[in-house]
Simulated assay, not measured.
Amino acid sequence: MSALASFPIAQKWPATDPSVIQLYSFPTPNGVKASIALEEMELPYEAHKVTLSDADVKSPEFLSLNPNNKIPAIIDPNGPDGEAIGLFESGAILLYLGEKTGKFIGNSARDKARITQWLMFQMGGLGPMFGQLGFFYKFAGSEIEDPRPRDRYINEAKRLLSVLEGHLEGRDWVAGDYSIADMAIAPWLRALDFYGAKEVLGWEGHKNLVAYLDRFLDRPAVQTGLVTPPRD
């Protein structure tokens, strides 16, 4: 019997190869963290497109794996102690895959602590704040006449960019060598273009961030991960 048989999500998104990691995702800034990590770590996997529609993320099958109805999520049929494991939350997935492979999480406890610190900076700050910026600057929140919500997230996004810009002075990557922290942070910087917010945030004035994002986007694994699974 396949290790996936006990996971209801596999009924809605059946596996072609149930022996490899199953990725349930969509190419959003959070979603591509997982696909980029899988590509960078050279892990065999199968990607299933889970759209952001209620029919997908609020389906009983998807909720059985992630009750918080957010992508990405994975099933590793070869999890700890040889038992299948399902995981949600992009940061948790990055840590799990890093631990599984021993890649991109540093070579010492000190390295790992530093990398985890910057991963949490993205999870607790950069992602949520940039997401709210997108809502109030580009999407439905932009119709609100009161400027205070929009100004709040513009100012907070500027502050976070300043933190990163200063930290990257003299550095290629945020936590020493290229790591899962970069796989988490850089996709959210890229999202500023989608939100049409680069100009209002003074993006071009951040020379370290501009060079950092260019370095990230030049990586072949990143280029594949950014379009996995395909939108169409």
Score class of each variant (00 low, 15 high):
I154F: 14
M41H: 01
L133S: 07
F135T: 14
A47D: 05
K70I: 09
A113I: 04
P77K: 01
E83P: 00
L87V: 13
F135R: 13
P229E: 12
M41T: 05
L4R: 01
I115M: 03
R219V: 04
I154K: 07
P67K: 15
D81Y: 06
K58W: 11
A55S: 14
E99T: 12
V20W: 03
L161F: 10
P220W: 05
W188N: 06
F62S: 08
W173G: 01
L87P: 13
P8D: 03
D177N: 11
G86N: 10
R114T: 13
E169G: 07
H206S: 15
N155H: 11
A34L: 05
P18I: 06
D56K: 11
F216R: 05
S53A: 15
D54I: 06
G124E: 10
Y212V: 09
P229T: 04
L4C: 04
A191Q: 07
D56V: 04
G170H: 06
V50C: 13
L133C: 09
P67R: 15
W118V: 00
K12N: 05
E143C: 06
L161E: 10
L168H: 07
D111T: 01
H167A: 12
S90R: 00
D111G: 06
L161D: 10
L95A: 08
L87R: 12
T16P: 00
M1C: 01
L160P: 14
A92H: 10
Y137C: 12
A186K: 02
Q22W: 04
G102R: 05
P29K: 01
D81A: 15
F130T: 08
Q22L: 05
P44D: 06
S162M: 06
G82R: 08
L4V: 02
G196F: 04
G102A: 07
M41C: 13
I9H: 08
D151L: 10
G124V: 02
K158T: 14
R171D: 07
L217W: 14
F26N: 12
V222I: 13
G125P: 03
